[in-house]
């Protein structure tokens, strides 16, 4: 598969000097579903920000579609327009994502910025509302909706642009199992539609189901491992060292046992 993104020793420091991401080299290939696993503050959001052209590396380079992502490159009208059309970013904070006064306007915002004709914008909004089951709340202010509905609106706002690449930052964080299942089903459909997906999460269940490839960031903000989901998710020592599983203490047969603990497990499908 052709790489769409390439991080070449890319690093990022916040303006106050804190390290967001240590020197990282990574490729994102066309049509793959890459999951970036890491504990809180390991640099997942920073990595997504770099890929999405929202922040720029302090060192190294980020290449997207053969062009280095720099502030200057994204000032260039043609490249910026094509990049924003091709790459959609779902931020973790829905308060930041949802800045319009109604769900309808929220979904229409992206297509409108791309100068699509008005009838096409309307059609995309209508289709997105139907796809996500948001038709009944189309005229409501997004901040009045439940957490799951708000996340759906934020997703709809991205999907309406129809990007080739979707960058999801903690898409299921703090949401109930029904939303998590819905999200997994959506990702499966998006993969079938040929989209490239990069999902930053610390939810191992999601990684297990949606990933083609997994990258693990450690608490020093660098890549600790990269590989197939099964190899990564069964390496309990690795997961313990990067704070993705915890040691579970319990009393068994009168003795205290302490061992790495994950909720991942095999299950049988009913015939």
């Amino acid at each position: 598969m052709t790489p769409i993104f390439a991080l070449e020793n890319a690093s990022y420091r916040y303006p106050d000097g804190r390290l967001g991401l240590a020197e990282t080299t990574l490729e994102v290939r066309e049509r793959e579903s890459l999951v970036v696993l890491g504990a809180n503050a390991s640099g997942k959001s920073t990595l997504l920000g770099l890929l999405g052209g929202l922040i720029f590396p302090s060192g190294g380079r980020v290449i997207a579609y053969g062009t280095a992502l720099t502030e200057a490159a994204l000032q260039d009208g043609e490249f910026a327009r094509s990049f924003r059309q091709r790459v959609g970013v779902l931020l973790q904070d829905t308060d930041a994502m949802l800045f319009n006064s109604t769900v309808y306007d929220e979904i229409a915002f992206g297509p409108l910025q791309l100068d699509l004709p008005e009838d096409q914008v309307r059609r995309r909004v209508e289709d997105t509302l139907d796809l996500l089951g948001l038709r009944s709340v189309a005229d409501q202010p997004p901040h009045r909706l439940s957490g799951g509905e708000q996340r759906k609106v934020a997703l709809g706002a991205i999907l309406a642009v129809s990007p080739e690449v979707l960058l999801f930052d903690e898409p299921t964080s703090g949401l109930d199992p029904r939303f998590q299942r819905w999200f997994v089903e959506l990702v499966i459909e998006l993969r079938q539609a040929g989209k490239t997906l990069v999902t930053a999460t610390h939810d191992l269940h999601i990684a297990d189901v949606i990933a083609d490839r997994v990258v693990v960031l450690d608490e020093d903000h660098k890549i600790a491992a990269e590989g197939r989901p099964r190899d990564i998710l069964t390496d309990l020592d690795l997961l313990l060292s990067v704070n993705l599983v915890h040691e579970h203490a319990h009393v068994h047969d009168g003795e205290l046992h302490i061992h790495p603990h994950t909720h991942l497990h095999e299950h049988e499908h009913a015939e």
Binding site: V87, A96, F99, F109, L114, A157
Partner: peptide, 19 residues
């Protein structure tokens, strides 16, 4: 800052277009 990032990510280029 985050709102601005969200706007940029959705194609905002300094001139808002509304329906």
């Amino acid at each position: 800052e985050q709102v601005y990032s969200a706007m940029l990510a959705r194609g905002y280029r300094g001139e808002p277009k509304v329906l």
